[in-house]
Design a protein around this nucleic acid. Structure first.
Lengths: 123, 123
DNA sequence: GGTACAATTCGTCATGTGGCGAAGTATAAT
DNA sequence: ATTATACTTCGCCACATGACGAATTGTACC
């Protein structure tokens, strides 16, 4: 029951739902998610930690970057079904559409430029 | 997206999951739920209000009693599917089993006796 | 080694949430 | 009308959570 509660709780927050939706069909690093969500990196990191603790996403390091993807393959059935549920009903949501448009632009930028846009590279 | 978040948030709490599980296939009044969950009536009432706001349960008055049932019929598909998901994966949970056993006994008592057991009738 | 930098962790704050008991509301019984 | 009672609302408290910036960590590049 705790596992089901953890999954539900993880999905019970708008910004995390936005992240999950953005990860539909692609991998993203934290800096891309940060740009999309418009939150501080530390905040995004915490959100992703919640999603990972619930088993909804998995992450791995590649150089300095940490990539996240949905835990579709090899995840418990309850998790897969929850993700499918969220994806299905968020599809038409205005917020999801809006994010999808912004995401397109973000994915076109390379990471250096992204960083510059966030104003954290001019040390 | 807010609706999906509200549904998830409502299900993201153990006692509310217990209530939803108990309502599987039956209606219950608040005093029965209170006995099952072992919480104060006011707390149970608040939990049920959250579930109702998310569209997961519906309630109606019958005399002094307020009955709750799952919002299966006529509810939005996202709600029905969420309830089905929760029911499916809570089935085997130890907590759910334990509650099911206690629930059997509670349902055998009539409401007067229930009230007496809760020690709120000896004004 | 030293610097740059993506990400996380830490410290802090404001707000949200779960819990209770007391007070209030609505309905039944006397 | 008065009392009893099933539930909700209100007021309060302790704790959880989302947000940020600062400090820390791990990795690449001089």
């Amino acid at each position: 029951m705790q596992e089901i509660a953890a999954i539900s709780k993880a999905l019970g927050e708008e910004n995390r739902l936005r992240a999950v939706t953005a990860l539909q069909g692609r991998e993203m690093c934290v800096c891309q998610l940060t740009e999309l969500l418009g939150l501080a990196p530390s905040t995004v990191s915490k959100h992703m930690a919640v999603l990972r603790a619930a088993g909804l996403v998995e992450s791995w390091k590649e150089g300095r970057w940490v990539h996240y993807r949905l835990a579709n393959r090899g995840a418990p059935p309850a998790v897969r079904q929850a993700l499918a549920w969220a994806a299905k009903w968020l599809q038409g949501s205005p917020r999801a559409r809006q994010d999808a448009a912004r995401l397109k632009k973000i994915l076109r930028l390379d990471k250096e430029e992204l960083c510059r846009r966030q104003g954290r590279c001019r040390g």
